[in-house]
Amino acid sequence: MRPATSIRFSANRADFFSTLNHRVNDYFKSNNISRYANAEMKFKTVFMYVLFFAPYILLMTQTVTQGWAMWLLTLVMGTGVAGIGLSVMHDANHGAYSNKSWVNNLIGYSLNVMGAGAFNWKVQHNVLHHTYTNIHDVDEDISPRGILRMSPHGNWKAIHKFQHLYAWFFYGLMTFVWVIHKDFARLIRYQKDGMVKKQKANLAAEWAILIATKLIYVGYILVLPMLVLDITFGQWFIGFFSMHYVAGFILAVIFQPAHVIDGSEYPLPDAEGKMENSWAIHQLHTTTNFANKSRWFSWYVGGLNFQVEHHLFPNVCHVHYRKISSIVKQTAEEFDLPYKAEPTFSGALMGHAKLLKELGKRPAMQVAQA
C-alpha cells in the first residue's frame, strides 16, 4: 500500500468548497436546525437495535423453537446488524450523531457490540477511504482482494473475467470475515504502517478494547445460545453464518455502487504525490448517488444513497442529506463540476456489475505482452 501521507491534494478552485460550506452552514443556521441527530434519528437508533435484539430475545427465551422459524429470526437479526451499521454506528463514528464526543464514542461502539472493532473502522473508513477515495493503493475499499479487482490500476488475474458473476456471493462474506479475522489483521497492519500512532491512539488500549469486546460478543452470540438452547454447534453455525451473510450482502451492495460503478473515476497522484484536484472536487469525481427519490430506502440505508453529500459533509447526520442535496447539486453545477447520480438502486447495481465486468477484462498492456 502507498503511504497516505505521501499524497497531497491541490489547492486549486478552493472557492467551490468554501462557497458550498457557507451555503450548507447557512441552511442550518437560518432554519435553526442542528446538524446532528434529531428525533427521527433517535427513533431509528432504537428501531435498529430492536431489529437485532428482539429476534435474539425470542430465540433465547425459547419463545420460538421450530428450526425453520429460528433460522428466519437469524435472517432478521442480519438486517438489524446491517441497519445498525448503516444508520447508527456510521454516523456516530463520523462524529455526526451528537455534538458531544462521548456520545459519539459510546454509540460508535455499536460496531463492537456487533462483533467488529470501531477503531479499525475509523482508520479504514474515515481516514483512508474518505480522504483518498478511489486512489489505488491507499483507499482500502478498492484494494486488491485476490478474487476481486475494484480498480483499473490493480493487478489482473484470469479469474477476474468472471467477477461480475461471482462477486455477489463473496459480498455476503464481508462481516463474517471481518468479525473472525479482519479486525485482528487490520490492527496489526495499522500498527506496522504507523496509522495507530498517527491517530494518537494507545495501541495497548485498542488491543484491550478489541479483545474484550470480541469476548463479550462470543459470550452472548455463541456461549449463551449453546448453554440455553437445545441446538448443536452445526445448527448454531448455520444461524450465525446466515445472520452475517445477510448483513454482509446488504452492506456491500449499498457501499459498492457509490464508488465502483460505471462512470467511476480513479485519479492517481503525480510522481511527487500531488493530486490534480482539491479534496472536495476529488469527491465529486469519485462518488455517485443513487435512488435519491426513495424515502424508505434512504431511511433504512442511513442516507448513504446520498453518498456525495456524505463524503463532502461526513460530520452532518444523514437525516439532513436530502435537504442539503439540492444545495450541493446547485453549487456543483454553478462551478461546472460533476454531480453523479443514478435514479434507481437497481440501476446502480447494474452499473456496478457493468464496471466489474469491465475491470475483469484483461488490460491491453498485458494482452500486448502475452
Score class of each variant (00 low, 15 high):
Thr133Gln: 01
Asn134Phe: 00
Ile135Gln: 04
Ile135His: 06
His136Thr: 13
Glu140Leu: 08
Asp141Arg: 04
Ile142Lys: 01
Pro144Glu: 14
Arg145Asp: 15
Arg145Trp: 11
Ile147Lys: 10
Gly154Ala: 15
Gly154Pro: 09
Asn155Tyr: 07
Asn155Leu: 05
Lys157Ala: 11
His160Ala: 03
Phe162Cys: 07
Gln163Arg: 01
His164Gln: 12
Leu165Ser: 08
Tyr166Glu: 08
Tyr166Phe: 11
Trp168Asn: 04
Phe176Pro: 09
Phe176Glu: 11
Val177His: 15
Val179Asp: 12
Val179Arg: 06
Asp183Leu: 04
Phe184Lys: 14
Phe184Val: 13
Arg186Glu: 15
Leu187Lys: 03
Ile188Ser: 13
Arg189Trp: 13
Gln191Trp: 09
Met195Ile: 14
Val196Phe: 07
Lys198Asn: 15
Lys200Asp: 14
Lys200Thr: 15
Lys200Val: 14
Asn202Gly: 02
Trp207Ser: 05
Trp207Leu: 06
Ala212Cys: 05
Thr213Pro: 03
Gly219Glu: 14
Leu224Lys: 10
Leu227Tyr: 09
Leu227Arg: 06
Val228Ala: 10
Val228Met: 11
Ile231Leu: 04
Thr232Cys: 04
Thr232Ala: 02
Thr232His: 07
Thr232Tyr: 03
Gly234Ala: 03
Gln235Val: 10
Trp236Pro: 01
Trp236Met: 03
Ile238Ala: 15
Gly239His: 06
Gly239Asn: 14
Phe240Arg: 05
Phe241Asn: 08
Met243Ile: 06
His244Gln: 10
Tyr245Gly: 09
Val246Phe: 00
Gly248Val: 01
Phe249Cys: 05
Ile250Lys: 01
Val253Thr: 06
Ile254Thr: 05
Ile254Ser: 02
Ile254Leu: 01
Phe255Lys: 04
His259Met: 02
His259Trp: 06
